[in-house]
């Protein structure tokens, strides 16, 4: 099998960066996220390929909302370069699959989503040791075989990364970098079991009759409206569109929004369909567990567990699903 020696990781990233914008998981300042390898500063940044669930999932790379001082959005011009997302995990690949499904469907085919997506190569890092909040296997995701990845790398410890090309795009890239890979037999690790299992069975149907259930009030009461659950969610895609006047030019740009904001749905005149915290809370979970499923046949969740780990109020999706399962209607 083809193996990438860990000592050659930076050489590989430099090589890939010659033709592409390569996004890698880094610890930068206070947080982790996917940043361009070209911006890597060894005194400040740390490459964290072994980190599960970096703080920000790489959901902004293809749909490219407003970047600092670069408000060029709807044209897709800035976002249409060749990109590689390196070291992405199964759950976050599923997040991109959701974007493909949602932004890539016929409604906006004429928009530049497909153009950007076609120029993106996904090099996924298989997960063998799930975190306590991980539950991707419960939503049908295989952490060892990310569906949608062009290349899968497998960390075998000091032997390096096993490198498997899964698509033509991946194969082509592998050929170009073949001199950095060595051919040898290594032992693939044995995956650990998931600590967290979430049972989605029947949840969507049951939620149909739970509009007035006290559960929404109970959890929303403690919600601090920090929106971390939505911003760090690889599958949350709600957008805000804004107009700006900047340096004598007019721009329209999109940026991520959150359904937890009180004025997210505020209309001129003061009416809002999502005035109550409990309504907003219910709308968020029903969107994930019922509405998306009604439209696309599966829940809008990748099981990454970020929202569980990050919520300061402990309102976790796994607890809520368990309460729905137990609710007597």
């Amino acid at each position: 099998m083809r193996v990438l020696n860990k000592a050659k990781i930076e050489t590989m990233l430099n090589r890939l960066s010659a033709d592409n914008d390569v996004y890698v998981p880094m610890l930068r300042g206070p947080g982790t996220g996917f940043f361009s390898w070209k911006s890597y500063d060894e005194d400040y940044d740390e490459l964290v390929l072994d980190r599960l669930n970096v703080f920000m999932p790489p959901k902004q790379i293809i749909i490219s909302p407003a970047e600092k001082n670069n408000i060029d959005l709807m044209s897709g011009g800035a976002g249409a370069s060749k990109k590689i997302i390196f070291g992405i995990r199964s759950c976050d690949v599923q997040g991109i699959n959701f974007q493909d499904e949602f932004f890539g469907e016929k409604e906006i085919e004429s928009d530049s989503y497909h153009g950007r997506r076609d120029q993106t190569i996904i090099i996924a890092n298989a997960c063998y040791y799930p975190a306590p909040s991980c539950f991707c296997s419960s939503v049908g995701i295989d952490p060892l075989h990310p569906v949608g990845a062009d290349i899968i790398i497998r960390d075998t410890g000091k032997e390096g990364y096993v490198w498997e090309a899964c698509t033509d795009k991946g194969e082509l890239l592998t050929e170009k970098t073949a001199d950095l890979l060595e051919e040898k037999e290594v032992t693939i690790p044995i995956p650990l079991p998931f600590a967290l299992q979430v049972n989605f069975d029947g949840v969507s149907e049951k939620l149909a009759d739970m509009d007035d259930h006290p559960l929404w009030g109970k959890y929303s009461e403690a919600c601090q409206t920090c929106m971390l659950c939505t911003y760090t969610c690889p599958s949350c895609y709600c957008l805000d569109l804004q107009a700006a006047h900047w340096r004598k030019a007019n721009y329209e740009f999109s940026c991520f929004d959150s359904c937890a904001y009180k004025n997210e749905a505020l209309s001129t005149g003061g009416s809002s369909s999502l005035e109550e915290a409990a309504t907003r809370f219910r709308n968020r979970f029903l969107h994930k567990l019922r509405f998306y499923l009604q439209n696309y046949g599966k829940p809008l969740c990748t099981g990454c567990g970020r929202c569980i780990a990050i919520c300061p109020s402990g309102a976790s999706i796994s607890k809520i699903i368990a309460e729905v399962q137990e609710a007597n209607l």
């Binding site: 949602f102 932004f103 409604e107 906006i108 895609y237 709600c238 957008l239 805000d240 569109l241 999109s254 929004d257 359904c259 997210e264 749905a265 369909s273 709308n283 029903l286 969107h287 019922r290 509405f291 998306y292 009604q294 439209n295």
Partner: peptide, 10 residues
Amino acid sequence: GKCGRCNIGS
């Protein structure tokens, strides 16, 4: 139908 602002249910 992409920004998620105006949904009522699905």
